[in-house]
Nucleic acid binder design. Structure first.
Lengths: 230, 230
DNA sequence: TATTGTGTTTTTGTCTGTCAAGATGAGAAC
DNA sequence: GTTCTCATCTTGACAGACAAAAACACAATA
């Protein structure tokens, strides 16, 4: 287990690098991701860059029309609503099932402790342990397909978050307290209450995120560039 | 709405054709899907066939290792368990939410009537309206991501079903009656009971399918070809 | 006989180069 | 000022080619 071989293909490597750059906010929907440009910047052939781009399009991080260059997906308030609703559907049912056996995942407890640890730091530092808390709950059921679906949603959430610069709308103490309460309810076997609390927990985050995205000059009301040069 | 334009790309067309051929059982895991063969049979270039294959690999219908030709995915009893568990997670929560507003989708009612209509026909005729019943419930929430996730699971279920030739294990009358009861419970607003009944409904189907797949000479215990020529 | 090693064949991964089709934007004509 | 046409950019798809990796068959050896 010491020397893990990294036998990944070139297009996978490019897709992974692009994905991290997208989720870090380095690439926004303002820049067009041309196949030839990507091929040139990574020093590979155009088909290779094309394959990497299509991979991310399939994941939903990039969008592209026919004969048009790919761009980072623009997620409006309605998309935020869809994403968080899907999260709530999956996760609330997971909490119900975990409560049936009173299973409290150890990683979730640790992740919530990590949230408290970074309470004084930047608001962005809260995102990672927060996501880890939720994904560890999902992974606790041990279902590969459910974990994959949830991870896809989480990456879309992160895609939304890199767009809003002021993440001060996160109340770290409240988040951590609600997480704690969720774990307690699961431990007590009260799945219905846990599902209900999770609904409120996610609905609150959803509203703040939707407002932050929708508040800035319209969600996906792409102004034609002709209106910009008034 | 009379002349729907078919402006789909070549690789999409090939992928769609391959998908139907897979779900109809024409292509099984016994035949290797070589890129050059696919390119020759569809009279396209190899990169085009490659893109179509990779699309289906991303969907989970095909599996492929590095430098190995693609094959139709082989889903064992454990995969059946995962798939049906994911279905149950999604759909039971959907039923709960539908029951909150006592929303009974009209298409679901119609689909269940269609099940009764084909009661005398082949057992395969039951699969289509049965799937339509469930997907119409999912689509009733109007969430694109949830619908997409569920459809992915449904196609995997169909992939399992084409492997078991004797589908006489389907009790049409029981299925139709349980569907009817589900709709009634939703209409009465009893989400908890609906979710519970759905769990049993899916668990029954899962057990039959897993038994039918696991019973035939082992799930993914691929015998090496050297043992075949004794 | 069983096992190991080698060489060949098949198949994929990736590159180079090319042409056609569609979309975008600029400029001319009215 | 509006509309039409055209040039340019970008993608879609093709052809051909080479390298790498896996699988298979076969021979050599303990």
């Amino acid at each position: 287990m010491t020397a893990r071989v990294t036998a990944t293909s070139i297009v996978d490597a490019i897709a992974n690098d692009l994905r991290t750059r997208i989720l870090e906010g380095e690439l926004t929907s303002a820049t067009a991701l041309t196949e030839t440009d990507m091929a040139a910047s990574y020093d590979v052939a155009r088909p290779t860059a094309k394959a990497a781009i299509e991979k991310l399009v399939a994941e939903g991080l990039l969008v592209r029309g026919a004969h048009k260059s790919a761009r980072v997906a623009e997620l409006g308030p309605d998309s935020v609503r869809d994403i968080y609703q899907a999260r709530a559907y999956l996760e609330s049912e997971v909490l119900r099932r975990l409560a049936l056996t009173c299973t409290v995942p150890e990683e979730a407890v640790q992740a919530n402790l990590d949230i408290a640890a970074v309470a004084g730091g930047s608001a962005l530092d809260v995102v990672e342990p927060d996501m880890r808390f939720h994904t560890s709950l999902i992974d606790a059921v041990g279902n590969e397909r459910i974990s994959r679906m949830y991870r896809s949603l989480v990456s879309e959430v992160r895609l939304c978050m890199v767009r809003v610069q002021s993440l001060n709308l996160l109340d770290t103490a409240l988040i951590q307290a609600e997480h704690q309460r969720l774990l307690e309810l699961i431990g007590e076997g009260d799945g219905a209450a846990a599902a209900e609390l999770l609904d409120e927990h996610l609905a609150r985050a959803r509203e703040r995120l939707a407002a932050a995205i929708g508040g800035e000059a319209g969600p996906e009301a792409h102004l034609p560039s002709s209106l910009h040069r008034v």
